[in-house]
C-alpha cells in the first residue's frame, strides 16, 4: 500500500468515526426516543448496492445502535 493510499484509508476511518459521533450527538439532542431501528435498517439494506456484506451491515449498525442507546441520557 502506498503512503497516499494509507492516507486515504485513515481519512475514511476518520470520516466514519466523525459521522458515528455526529449520529450520537443528534440522538442526544432529541427529547423523544427514536422509532425502532429495525425497519430503517432493512430499508437501508434494500438500497445498499456496495460490496460490504448485509450481515456485516446488520452487525455494524447493531453495535452503533447499542452503544448510542447506552450513552444516550
Amino acid at each position: 500500500m502506498t503512503p497516499a493510499e494509507q492516507h486515504q484509508l485513515r481519512a475514511l476511518d476518520r470520516a466514519i468515526l466523525d459521522l458515528v459521533d455526529e449520529r450520537l450527538r443528534l440522538l442526544q439532542e432529541v427529547e423523544s426516543r427514536p422509532p425502532s431501528g429495525t425497519a430503517a435498517l432493512e430499508d437501508l439494506l434494500r438500497r445498499h448496492t456496495g460490496g460490504f456484506p448485509a450481515g456485516g451491515v446488520r452487525e455494524l449498525f447493531g453495535v452503533i445502535d447499542r452503544h448510542c442507546s447506552e450513552i444516550r441520557p
Partner: peptide, 15 residues
C-alpha cells in the same frame, strides 16, 4: 449539511 459537516470534522449546531 449534518452528514457533510460530520465528514469535514465539524458538526451541525445543536437545535
Amino acid at each position: 449539511t449534518r452528514v457533510l459537516s460530520g465528514v469535514l470534522g465539524r458538526n451541525l449546531h445543536p437545535a
